[in-house]
Design a protein around this nucleic acid. Structure first.
Lengths: 337, 337
DNA sequence: CTTGGCACTCGGGCTACCCGAGTGCCAGGG
DNA sequence: CCCTGGCACTCGGGTAGCCCGAGTGCCAAG
């Protein structure tokens, strides 16, 4: 129902519109791309494409612009992810390799992504539920107060203060720490719930109340509330991409952790790059925005998601290339440490 | 040289302009405020104020708007910090009290401040150099790799991976940990440089190389690089305040940690609220912005700075009130933990 | 020093207008 | 059956002209 030429026309419209930000007409189309037909022919094709909902004209006497559906077809069938040159890859690699810290890796990643795509970059911290425990530390604060510090094998450190019901001494802390480390070391956080359940049997009855308090805090902090932070960068790029709807809405949405989580979370597939266009991401206020996202981390050990947010009028091939490349290297860097 | 009425006129101009965002003329002035003189009189006063550089007229036939100098005088002499009602204070208190975490306290603080002032809020993490060491933890990772975790009495946790020159066993780690904790516990981070200098004498000569590596990393991480993170919130408020210069510049400036640090850092006084107006903060791109900032933490133990950034056309009394109140309660919350 | 009067300025909003890009349609030709 | 050139039509956006009203500065009188 759409022959090759019509698809070529759609592709051309998307490409031109993305680069010029102006509705594209039949004449300009035959000139810029070497379609060996007359403008009138193109017009007929465009009429069909419009009828099918792939393009619209904003005003009666203007060129056409792609609809969400048009972009969708473009992304699915008409374009290929733009691979990065080896020089670019090397630049990415060295930029990320300079990081000395988990925080720093994430910071650099978000900056890099924002710079490469000239869009807003969104990076989720490595997820707790996917990582394993490396060490648990208990630090006495004041009377009846402990600081629980949990170190994961992705280098992430989680902390939480806990009030324990009875006072403790150094020995009991030592013991509790030893038990915890023996049981938890190397275990995935997702497994911990079941492990903790039978832990109390291992400690001195006198210590049970305190132990229970610590256990429940660990559970609560790390399993129930898998706080997965998201950081955002490159917000200034939004000013260039004049959003049809208010820029305010977009900025607001980007400040809501929950919204961002959902945006990235909807990326089902871990390894491939997902694109959600316009209304496809059912976040109010991002109706005219697209999200290009993917997971990072090795295939057997997915860590989290990252991506970019921009106007639907976005250079998808490049954005997808950048997201894929950055995800790859960030995953690699994190795997090493 | 400026009599009372002229000052009153300036005050009225600032207040009206802030609330209406329109140049204010002589007639409107006598109507809205009950100055018992005629518009002509006001005009004469305004001519003087303009001559002295406190106000300007954007167009020949328009009302006047304050200059930076005008705002400065207003802030210094013509306004008082707007105190918060007890109800408002209670709301702040309960909102902040819900936090369970240092990260969470900072997050809530920045949100609260942004909401109260309808401006962009900027909050600096409690400074390391001001806080004391509570605990040092060494965690073996793989061969010749240690994770150094440092816990401060503000509840902050700093982490860093260190490669040590020779391999180690559990005992040597234990010993090193014990030595470190014995020496560092309760000491201010600023003192540590001198302490570490004479530490090597305390450890077994065989362990010196590893110990030295750990020491130097602690030094480097915590003293030299007192990484003081700044977080920003409420960026969407920028869209409401139409900046005369590009909004892009402002957004860009707000993404630069360094710039933010400088902005807050220039707040010399720890306890009082500092206001920097327009070109006074010598950050390019924030020429039309003002910063209202103060320190938080108790007087004897300053932690860091916080504040808001907005257009020079800002409700200073309210902003100052909010900044002061939030700083107070945030400091209080952090002092408790 | 204040006040009312008065002439002057000029930005912003309104209308009218035209131009040109772009379309849809149609009839003719390969 | 599809492509093509021609042609009439539409309409957004830019330009020019216009007026209005808010606001000013100045001046002379109280």
């Amino acid at each position: 129902m759409l022959d090759d030429r019509k698809l070529a026309v759609l592709r051309a419209i998307v490409e031109d519109y993305v680069s010029t930000n102006e509705p594209v007409g039949s004449r300009a189309l035959v000139e810029r791309h070497n379609l060996d037909v007359s403008p009138a022919t193109i017009r007929n094709d465009m009429a069909v494409l419009e009828e099918q909902g792939y393009i619209v004209q904003p005003h009666t006497s203007a060129g056409r612009i792609p609809t969400d559906k048009g972009y969708r077809l473009f992304v699915d069938k008409l374009s290929a992810i733009k691979p990065f040159s080896t020089a670019e890859r090397r630049a990415i690699e060295t930029f990320l390799a300079g990081a000395y810290d988990l925080d720093d890796v994430v910071m650099r990643t978000v900056r890099l992504l924002a710079q490469l795509t000239r869009q807003v970059a969104v990076v989720q911290y490595p997820s707790l539920s996917k990582s394993a425990v490396r060490h648990v530390e208990l630090v006495p604060l004041v009377e009846r107060r402990l600081l629980v510090v949990l170190i994961t094998d992705t280098g992430r450190v989680e902390q939480r203060v806990v009030d324990v019901p009875t006072s403790y001494d150094e020995d009991s802390i030592m013991h509790l720490r030893a038990v915890l480390n023996a049981c938890l070391d190397g275990r995935k956080l997702t497994d911990i719930a079941t492990i903790v359940a039978d832990l109390p049997g291992r400690v001195d009855p006198r210590e049970r109340p305190n132990a229970a308090a610590v256990f429940s805090v660990i559970l609560e902090t790390l399993v129930e509330r898998h706080e997965e932070k998201v950081i955002v960068g490159g917000a200034s790029n939004l000013t260039a991409a004049d959003f049809s709807q208010g820029l305010r809405e977009v900025l607001e949405a980007l400040e809501e952790q929950v919204v961002l989580m959902r945006l990235l979370g909807e990326t089902e597939d871990q390894t491939s790059v997902t694109v959600r266009i316009g209304a496809e991401n059912d976040v109010l206020g991002l109706r005219t925005a697209s999200v290009v996202a993917t997971g990072y981390g090795s295939a057997d050990r997915p860590l989290a998601k990252l991506g970019v947010v921009g106007p639907t009028r976005m250079d998808y091939p490049t954005a997808m290339g950048a997201v894929r490349a950055v995800a790859r290297y960030t995953g690699q860097i994190l795997a090493e440490s």
